[in-house]
């Protein structure tokens, strides 16, 4: 059994193992705290995603509605032509932020280019097209925010999985193994103590017999 557990049944080893189990327990507690905090952050982001997705869908629906009105009012070909003439450059500023030690992107549409001149000719188009353009720009802002949050959620989920695996390894493999080793050493030491006790008793009995 000693070889199977890979541990010598000595008092020194017992002390070492007790120290090791205390360290493992401490690591386990800290990782569990991290896991709890990660879960909190993850659900917070999920709630935010729900809100932003709702806003994005509403603004997209509004934008496509405006586009349909525009197509009906100035014509499909004219609207397509205006769309081709649109300045489509969108500058995004991507920064890193840390959520519980997990690097997540923070994406912002550059403020200067957020509302550029549309680029299409005012002649031949109407105010409905401007409204549709504005609605799409607004929808884009929601979509960018949604992308940012979804990326954060994926990164947090990956970290959560990794942390959970470590917590489980400590909880179900390392700590029980150490406990088993301690139990083994303790039982071996008890057995040695019992053996010594009986040996001493026997020696005492032999010596008493000799004296008689």
């Amino acid at each position: 059994m000693a070889t199977a557990l890979g541990v010598a049944p000595t008092r020194m080893e017992l002390i070492k193992l007790r120290r090791r189990i205390a360290l493992a327990q401490k690591g386990h507690d800290l990782l569990r705290e991290k896991m709890d905090a990660l879960i909190m952050e993850f659900f917070g982001i999920l709630r935010e995603i729900e809100d932003v997705r709702k806003n994005a869908l509403e603004s997209l629906s509004k934008a496509f509605g405006q586009l349909s009105i525009c197509q009906a009012e100035i014509g499909t070909i004219e609207t397509l032509q205006a769309a081709r003439e649109m300045k489509r450059d969108v500058t995004l500023r991507i920064q890193t932020r840390y959520l519980m030690g997990v690097s997540v992107p923070h994406v912002e549409i550059d403020q200067d280019k957020k509302a550029p001149l549309p680029g299409y000719s005012i002649h031949g188009t109407s105010a409905v097209l401007d409204k549709a353009t504005a609605a799409f720009v607004q929808a884009l802002a929601h979509l960018v925010k949604l992308a940012e949050l979804e990326a954060a959620a994926y990164a947090l989920a990956r970290e959560l999985e990794r942390t959970k695996r470590r917590v489980n390894a400590l909880e179900h493999v390392l700590i029980p193994r150490l406990q088993q080793m301690i139990k083994f050493i303790q039982s071996r030491l008890d057995e040695i103590e019992r053996e010594n006790f009986t040996r001493l008793k026997r020696i005492k009995a032999i010596l008493e017999r000799r004296h008689q």
């Binding site: 360290l23 401490k26 990782l31 519980m100």
Partner: peptide, 15 residues
């Protein structure tokens, strides 16, 4: 085991 736990503890505050 000790190295693994120490490494994990170090990583906890790396951010």
């Amino acid at each position: 085991i000790e190295a693994f736990i120490r490494q994990e503890q170090a990583k906890l505050n790396a951010h």
